[in-house]
Write a protein that binds this DNA or RNA. Structure first.
Lengths: 201, 201
DNA sequence: CCTACCGATCGGTAGG
DNA sequence: CCTACCGATCGGTAGG
């Protein structure tokens, strides 16, 4: 029977490795045989944990979301709502990407680009995670606005779009051109963007 | 013998279709057998045009770059250097993405994300094309600066990074969430960004 | 959770 | 430029 503590630990080790592979080679490039060999178990043994490749992919997305929440979202909640939390959120994201928590950079950047033009449950799961994150950033921006730290006419969705654009492009450029400078570019852009919208200039 | 007019036309039809597939399913998801079936030719016949999958991938990148130049770069050269050309470049890019010149959105966004964490000739070709584009945008920005239409202390590389971030994120968001609003977000951000750097406020 | 296998598809080749 | 094939690998299953 599934669900025993031992199984859960094994499952979590499998999924953490799956997310690492997928960040580099995509969720289609992640093959059950390769993952099994990597982990030193039989292919059918590993297969039994998930039942299909699609279920493995979906479980990997959920596992990566948990890492993302732990690395980026949770530590920002220790900062009180307001501009400080927005800044912290951005810095956490850039650090998560730059430290290569996943070896291929942000897991969701890779998987969103892979599935953005195909239908299916994996795409739906990735899109839902992306929407959660976008809304979370927009909410943090709106909190700062309501607290009077950002101008009253600030559009939270628009500002969230711009901040996320800088972060994701830093991830993309740093990977493709092996250029850590991209993170400083993003930090500069985010600083300027928030300063412009700030009431405390 | 290769290189006859007939062959060149066939080759170009093959590569245009290859780029369409790759924009949706990636250059690894592009299989020789599937491409051959799609085009109604034999797999080995098609294979003969390229000699290996990697050569097909590289030829596809070159073909997509030609489309990109024709759709985005060339029509911007009809506008004289300066802020107008920068705006035109951005608008051409957004239109190229929004019109789905490639059905999976910007070919290079998809392929760059697919290969950004793997070594090889395909990655190198994608990175080179990306660098060409980034430099072209930065050059257009610097022209506008030297013409006095952008502030003298404008950093062309920084501004190019920001403009490209808005464009690529519009592409990504519009695909993943089927949300054409993302393009208006990018247009708003680009307008504000250029207005802020402009000397004609 | 293992070995051993299934049919399908992959990139690539032989031979004409 | 075709048919027919190669070994390798894919997702998935049978049987224990």
């Amino acid at each position: 029977m599934a669900g025993r503590p031992r199984d859960e630990r094994t499952r979590s080790v499998i999924l953490r490795r799956a997310a690492d592979i997928a960040s580099q080679d995509g969720l289609e490039g992640l093959s059950i045989g390769r993952l099994a060999t990597d982990l030193g178990v039989s292919k059918s043994g590993l297969f039994g944990y998930f039942g299909s490749k699609e279920e493995l992919q979906l479980a990997t997305v959920r596992a990566a979301a948990a890492v993302y929440v732990e690395e980026v979202v949770q530590p920002a909640l220790t900062v009180p709502p307001g501009l400080g939390r927005v800044r912290r959120l951005c810095e956490n994201w850039l650090s998560y990407s730059q430290r290569r928590v996943f070896p291929g950079g942000c897991f969701f950047f890779a998987v969103n680009a892979e599935f953005d033009a195909r239908p299916g449950r994996v795409r739906d799961a990735a899109a839902a995670a992306s929407l959660d994150w976008t809304r979370f950033v927009a909410r943090a921006v709106d909190d700062a606005r309501q607290l009077g730290e950002l101008a009253g006419d600030t559009d939270p969705d628009q500002l969230a779009f711009e901040l996320i654009a800088f972060m994701e492009t830093a991830n993309a450029v740093s990977l493709l051109h092996d250029d850590p400078n991209a993170y400083e570019r993003a930090r500069t852009a985010i600083r300027r963007c928030l300063d412009t919208a700030s009431t405390n200039r």
